[in-house]
Protein backbone atom coordinates (compact mmCIF):
# COMPACT_ATOMS: atom_id res chain seq x y z
CA UNK A 1 0.00 0.00 0.00
CA UNK A 2 2.77 2.40 1.08
CA UNK A 3 4.79 1.49 -1.98
CA UNK A 4 1.79 2.16 -4.17
CA UNK A 5 1.33 5.68 -2.65
CA UNK A 6 5.01 6.50 -3.08
CA UNK A 7 4.94 5.40 -6.74
CA UNK A 8 1.89 7.58 -7.33
CA UNK A 9 3.56 10.66 -5.77
CA UNK A 10 6.72 10.02 -7.73
CA UNK A 11 4.80 9.75 -10.93
CA UNK A 12 2.87 12.97 -10.26
CA UNK A 13 5.93 15.06 -9.31
CA UNK A 14 8.35 13.77 -11.88
CA UNK A 15 5.94 13.87 -14.71
CA UNK A 16 5.51 17.73 -14.25
CA UNK A 17 1.78 17.58 -14.44
CA UNK A 18 -0.84 20.08 -13.18
CA UNK A 19 -0.83 18.63 -9.72
CA UNK A 20 2.86 19.34 -9.39
CA UNK A 21 2.30 22.90 -10.45
CA UNK A 22 -0.54 23.24 -8.02
CA UNK A 23 1.66 22.08 -5.15
CA UNK A 24 4.38 24.54 -6.05
CA UNK A 25 1.92 27.48 -6.12
CA UNK A 26 0.31 26.32 -2.94
CA UNK A 27 3.61 26.09 -1.09
CA UNK A 28 4.73 29.49 -2.45
CA UNK A 29 1.42 31.04 -1.36
CA UNK A 30 1.65 29.57 2.10
CA UNK A 31 5.23 30.86 2.45
CA UNK A 32 4.26 34.37 1.29
CA UNK A 33 1.22 34.46 3.60
CA UNK A 34 3.33 33.28 6.52
CA UNK A 35 5.91 35.98 5.82
CA UNK A 36 3.24 38.64 5.64
CA UNK A 37 1.60 37.50 8.88
CA UNK A 38 5.05 37.49 10.52
CA UNK A 39 5.81 41.01 9.31
CA UNK A 40 2.38 42.37 10.28
CA UNK A 41 2.53 40.86 13.79
CA UNK A 42 6.09 42.05 14.19
CA UNK A 43 5.05 45.53 13.09
CA UNK A 44 2.15 45.44 15.56
CA UNK A 45 4.54 44.43 18.30
CA UNK A 46 2.64 41.29 19.07
CA UNK A 47 5.68 39.11 18.48
CA UNK A 48 9.42 39.64 18.70
CA UNK A 49 11.93 38.93 15.95
CA UNK A 50 12.14 35.29 16.90
CA UNK A 51 8.31 35.00 16.65
CA UNK A 52 7.92 34.89 20.42
CA UNK A 53 4.68 36.25 21.68
CA UNK A 54 4.95 39.62 23.43
CA UNK A 55 2.68 40.15 26.56
CA UNK A 56 -0.46 42.02 26.09
CA UNK A 57 -0.12 45.79 26.82
CA UNK A 58 -3.30 45.77 28.89
CA UNK A 59 -1.99 42.99 31.00
CA UNK A 60 1.31 44.80 31.39
CA UNK A 61 -0.55 47.88 32.42
CA UNK A 62 -2.56 45.93 35.00
CA UNK A 63 0.60 44.33 36.31
CA UNK A 64 2.28 47.70 36.50
CA UNK A 65 -0.71 49.11 38.42
CA UNK A 66 -0.63 46.09 40.73
CA UNK A 67 3.09 46.59 41.24
CA UNK A 68 2.58 50.26 41.95
CA UNK A 69 -0.22 49.44 44.42
CA UNK A 70 1.94 46.86 46.12
CA UNK A 71 4.80 49.32 46.35
CA UNK A 72 2.46 51.89 47.85
CA UNK A 73 1.19 49.32 50.33
CA UNK A 74 4.74 48.34 51.23
CA UNK A 75 5.60 52.00 51.69
CA UNK A 76 2.48 52.52 53.81
CA UNK A 77 3.27 49.45 55.89
CA UNK A 78 6.83 50.63 56.33
CA UNK A 79 5.52 54.01 57.42
CA UNK A 80 3.13 52.34 59.86
CA UNK A 81 5.95 50.14 61.09
CA UNK A 82 8.09 53.21 61.70
CA UNK A 83 5.23 54.89 63.55
CA UNK A 84 4.65 51.79 65.64
CA UNK A 85 8.36 51.54 66.35
CA UNK A 86 8.31 55.15 67.46
CA UNK A 87 5.24 54.54 69.63
CA UNK A 88 6.89 51.42 71.07
CA UNK A 89 9.95 53.46 71.84
CA UNK A 90 7.81 56.09 73.54
CA UNK A 91 5.88 53.47 75.52
CA UNK A 92 9.17 51.86 76.59
CA UNK A 93 10.49 55.24 77.62
CA UNK A 94 7.29 55.93 79.51
CA UNK A 95 7.56 52.55 81.23
CA UNK A 96 11.15 53.26 82.14
CA UNK A 97 10.07 56.61 83.58
CA UNK A 98 7.29 54.91 85.53
CA UNK A 99 9.70 52.26 86.82
CA UNK A 100 12.04 55.01 87.86
CA UNK A 101 9.19 56.83 89.60
CA UNK A 102 8.18 53.62 91.40
CA UNK A 103 11.78 53.07 92.47
CA UNK A 104 12.02 56.63 93.76
CA UNK A 105 8.69 56.19 95.53
CA UNK A 106 9.95 52.98 97.13
CA UNK A 107 13.16 54.68 98.16
CA UNK A 108 11.27 57.55 99.76
CA UNK A 109 8.89 55.11 101.44
CA UNK A 110 11.78 53.06 102.84
CA UNK A 111 13.36 56.25 104.17
CA UNK A 112 10.04 57.35 105.64
CA UNK A 113 9.43 53.90 107.11
CA UNK A 114 12.88 53.87 108.71
CA UNK A 115 12.16 57.23 110.29
CA UNK A 116 8.72 56.06 111.43
CA UNK A 117 10.35 52.91 112.79
CA UNK A 118 12.86 55.04 114.66
CA UNK A 119 10.09 57.25 116.05
CA UNK A 120 8.01 54.35 117.36
CA UNK A 121 11.13 52.90 118.94
CA UNK A 122 11.94 56.29 120.51
CA UNK A 123 8.40 56.40 121.85
CA UNK A 124 9.03 53.07 123.57
CA UNK A 125 12.20 54.48 125.13
CA UNK A 126 10.27 57.54 126.32
CA UNK A 127 7.63 55.24 127.79
CA UNK A 128 10.22 53.21 129.72
CA UNK A 129 11.91 56.42 130.89
CA UNK A 130 8.59 57.84 132.10
CA UNK A 131 7.79 54.54 133.75
CA UNK A 132 11.10 54.43 135.63
CA UNK A 133 10.86 58.07 136.67
CA UNK A 134 7.35 57.42 137.98
CA UNK A 135 8.63 54.38 139.86
CA UNK A 136 11.50 56.43 141.34
CA UNK A 137 9.14 59.19 142.42
CA UNK A 138 6.73 56.70 143.88
CA UNK A 139 9.42 54.82 145.78
CA UNK A 140 11.89 57.39 147.06
CA UNK A 141 13.65 54.97 149.36
CA UNK A 142 14.52 52.68 146.50
CA UNK A 143 15.53 55.68 144.39
CA UNK A 144 18.02 56.88 147.01
CA UNK A 145 19.46 53.43 147.34
CA UNK A 146 19.87 52.85 143.61
CA UNK A 147 20.17 56.39 142.29
CA UNK A 148 23.33 55.86 140.25
CA UNK A 149 21.94 52.77 138.66
CA UNK A 150 18.58 54.41 137.96
CA UNK A 151 20.15 57.48 136.34
CA UNK A 152 22.54 55.41 134.26
CA UNK A 153 19.57 53.47 133.02
CA UNK A 154 17.49 56.57 132.33
CA UNK A 155 20.29 58.28 130.42
CA UNK A 156 20.96 55.08 128.50
CA UNK A 157 17.41 55.24 127.16
CA UNK A 158 18.29 58.65 125.76
CA UNK A 159 21.53 57.29 124.29
CA UNK A 160 19.56 54.43 122.72
CA UNK A 161 17.57 56.92 120.65
CA UNK A 162 20.74 58.29 119.06
CA UNK A 163 21.50 56.81 115.65
CA UNK A 164 25.00 55.48 114.95
CA UNK A 165 26.00 54.66 118.53
CA UNK A 166 29.34 53.12 117.52
CA UNK A 167 30.38 56.08 115.39
CA UNK A 168 29.06 58.83 117.64
CA UNK A 169 29.84 57.25 121.00
CA UNK A 170 27.28 59.43 122.78
CA UNK A 171 27.81 60.10 126.48
CA UNK A 172 25.50 62.07 128.72
CA UNK A 173 26.18 64.00 131.90
CA UNK A 174 23.96 66.19 134.07
CA UNK A 175 25.39 69.13 135.97
CA UNK A 176 23.58 71.15 138.58
CA UNK A 177 24.40 74.40 140.30
CA UNK A 178 27.32 74.16 142.70
CA UNK A 179 26.11 74.91 146.23
CA UNK A 180 29.40 76.50 147.27
CA UNK A 181 31.24 77.67 144.15
CA UNK A 182 28.97 80.26 142.67
CA UNK A 183 30.88 80.41 139.40
CA UNK A 184 30.65 76.68 138.75
CA UNK A 185 28.32 73.80 138.10
CA UNK A 186 28.86 70.34 139.54
CA UNK A 187 28.30 66.74 138.49
CA UNK A 188 24.94 65.19 139.26
CA UNK A 189 24.53 62.07 137.09
CA UNK A 190 25.98 60.45 133.98
CA UNK A 191 25.28 57.70 131.49
CA UNK A 192 27.40 54.62 130.91
CA UNK A 193 30.59 55.16 128.94
CA UNK A 194 32.08 57.81 131.23
CA UNK A 195 35.00 57.23 133.56
CA UNK A 196 34.76 58.13 137.24
CA UNK A 197 36.73 61.30 136.52
CA UNK A 198 33.58 62.81 135.10
CA UNK A 199 32.45 63.40 138.69
CA UNK A 200 35.42 65.67 139.29
CA UNK A 201 34.77 68.05 136.45
CA UNK A 202 33.03 71.26 137.51
CA UNK A 203 32.23 73.41 134.48
CA UNK A 204 32.52 77.17 134.78
CA UNK A 205 29.29 79.08 134.42
CA UNK A 206 31.20 81.50 132.28
CA UNK A 207 33.63 79.75 129.97
CA UNK A 208 32.12 76.35 129.23
CA UNK A 209 29.42 74.99 126.94
CA UNK A 210 27.32 73.77 129.88
CA UNK A 211 27.83 77.15 131.59
CA UNK A 212 26.63 78.94 128.46
CA UNK A 213 23.43 76.85 128.39
CA UNK A 214 23.00 77.55 132.12
CA UNK A 215 23.49 81.29 131.74
CA UNK A 216 21.37 81.78 128.66
CA UNK A 217 18.83 79.13 129.64
CA UNK A 218 18.77 77.97 126.02
CA UNK A 219 20.13 74.95 124.17
CA UNK A 220 23.74 75.29 123.11
CA UNK A 221 25.00 73.12 120.27
CA UNK A 222 28.73 73.10 119.62
CA UNK A 223 29.21 71.34 116.30
CA UNK A 224 32.99 71.37 116.67
CA UNK A 225 34.70 71.92 120.01
CA UNK A 226 37.91 72.80 118.16
CA UNK A 227 36.21 75.79 116.62
CA UNK A 228 37.38 78.67 118.81
CA UNK A 229 34.29 80.75 118.12
CA UNK A 230 32.28 78.50 120.43
CA UNK A 231 32.22 78.97 124.17
CA UNK A 232 33.82 75.82 125.43
CA UNK A 233 36.18 74.84 128.22
CA UNK A 234 39.23 73.76 126.22
CA UNK A 235 41.17 72.95 129.34
CA UNK A 236 39.12 69.77 129.54
CA UNK A 237 41.25 68.61 126.60
CA UNK A 238 38.77 65.94 125.78
CA UNK A 239 38.43 66.88 122.13
CA UNK A 240 40.11 63.66 121.13
CA UNK A 241 37.11 61.82 122.58
CA UNK A 242 34.47 64.04 121.10
CA UNK A 243 34.08 66.91 118.68
CA UNK A 244 30.41 67.72 119.30
CA UNK A 245 28.65 68.77 122.47
CA UNK A 246 25.02 69.68 123.01
CA UNK A 247 23.98 71.32 126.28
CA UNK A 248 20.33 71.58 127.24
CA UNK A 249 19.17 73.44 130.35
CA UNK A 250 16.95 71.52 132.74
CA UNK A 251 14.00 73.82 133.25
CA UNK A 252 10.23 73.71 133.51
CA UNK A 253 8.83 75.04 130.26
CA UNK A 254 10.25 78.40 129.22
CA UNK A 255 10.57 79.89 132.68
CA UNK A 256 14.31 80.58 133.35
CA UNK A 257 13.68 80.83 137.09
CA UNK A 258 12.90 77.10 137.15
CA UNK A 259 16.30 76.01 135.82
CA UNK A 260 18.05 73.43 137.98
CA UNK A 261 20.84 72.08 135.83
CA UNK A 262 22.22 71.29 132.38
CA UNK A 263 22.13 68.03 130.49
CA UNK A 264 25.08 67.64 128.11
CA UNK A 265 25.62 65.01 125.45
CA UNK A 266 28.89 64.57 123.56
CA UNK A 267 29.45 62.99 120.15
CA UNK A 268 32.68 61.71 118.68
CA UNK A 269 32.52 63.14 115.14
CA UNK A 270 32.15 66.74 114.19
CA UNK A 271 28.50 67.89 113.97
CA UNK A 272 27.36 64.49 115.24
CA UNK A 273 23.70 65.16 115.82
CA UNK A 274 20.75 65.59 113.52
CA UNK A 275 17.92 67.97 114.28
CA UNK A 276 15.64 65.12 115.38
CA UNK A 277 18.29 63.85 117.80
CA UNK A 278 18.68 67.31 119.31
CA UNK A 279 14.90 67.42 119.73
CA UNK A 280 15.01 64.06 121.50
CA UNK A 281 17.69 65.27 123.90
CA UNK A 282 15.50 68.29 124.72
CA UNK A 283 12.54 65.96 125.26
CA UNK A 284 14.52 63.72 127.61
CA UNK A 285 15.75 66.78 129.53
CA UNK A 286 12.10 67.68 130.12
CA UNK A 287 11.28 64.11 131.10
CA UNK A 288 14.09 63.95 133.65
CA UNK A 289 13.29 67.32 135.18
CA UNK A 290 10.77 66.16 137.84
CA UNK A 291 13.09 63.53 139.23
CA UNK A 292 16.15 65.80 139.38
CA UNK A 293 14.00 68.59 140.80
CA UNK A 294 12.57 66.35 143.50
CA UNK A 295 16.03 65.08 144.40
CA UNK A 296 17.60 68.56 144.61
CA UNK A 297 14.75 70.01 146.58
CA UNK A 298 15.04 67.22 149.08
CA UNK A 299 18.49 68.63 149.72
CA UNK A 300 20.26 65.35 149.42
CA UNK A 301 22.89 66.49 146.96
CA UNK A 302 26.03 67.92 148.42
CA UNK A 303 29.27 69.14 146.91
CA UNK A 304 30.73 65.73 147.69
CA UNK A 305 28.18 63.98 145.58
CA UNK A 306 25.03 62.30 146.57
CA UNK A 307 24.40 61.05 150.10
Amino acid sequence: MFEYIMKLIEKLVIDGGWLSELFRYLIAGVLVATCMIYLIRLWQGKIDILWRKVEDQGQVHILQVDKSNLEQQVEKLQQEKMELDQKLKEVRLEMMEKDKTIQELQKIFVELDEKYDDETYTTSQIMYTAEEIAAALANEENFHLKRDDIFTNLLDYLVNTIKGYREKNPRVVIHIEHPEKKDRLMHYAHSSGHSHRIREYEPLKDGSAAGRAWRTCTNYYVSDVEDKTYEYDRKVASSKYYRTILCVPLKAGNDPSTRIGVLSITGQPENAYEKIEIDRVVLFASLLYPLVYMDIKKGEVSIHGRT
Binding site: D117, D118, T120, Y121, T123, Q125, N160, Y165
Partner: peptide
Protein backbone atom coordinates in the same frame (compact mmCIF):
# COMPACT_ATOMS: atom_id res chain seq x y z
CA UNK B 1 20.70 48.79 116.93
CA UNK B 2 18.08 47.09 114.77
CA UNK B 3 18.00 44.12 117.15
CA UNK B 4 17.86 46.45 120.15
CA UNK B 5 14.99 48.37 118.56
CA UNK B 6 13.07 45.21 117.76
CA UNK B 7 13.52 43.63 121.18
CA UNK B 8 13.06 46.83 123.18
CA UNK B 9 9.91 47.85 121.39
CA UNK B 10 8.46 44.36 121.25
CA UNK B 11 5.74 45.55 118.85
CA UNK B 12 4.73 48.53 120.97
CA UNK B 13 3.50 51.55 118.99
CA UNK B 14 4.39 49.69 115.79
CA UNK B 15 1.08 48.25 114.53
CA UNK B 16 0.14 51.14 112.30
CA UNK B 17 3.58 51.38 110.73
Amino acid sequence: RKQLMYRMRNGLFDHER
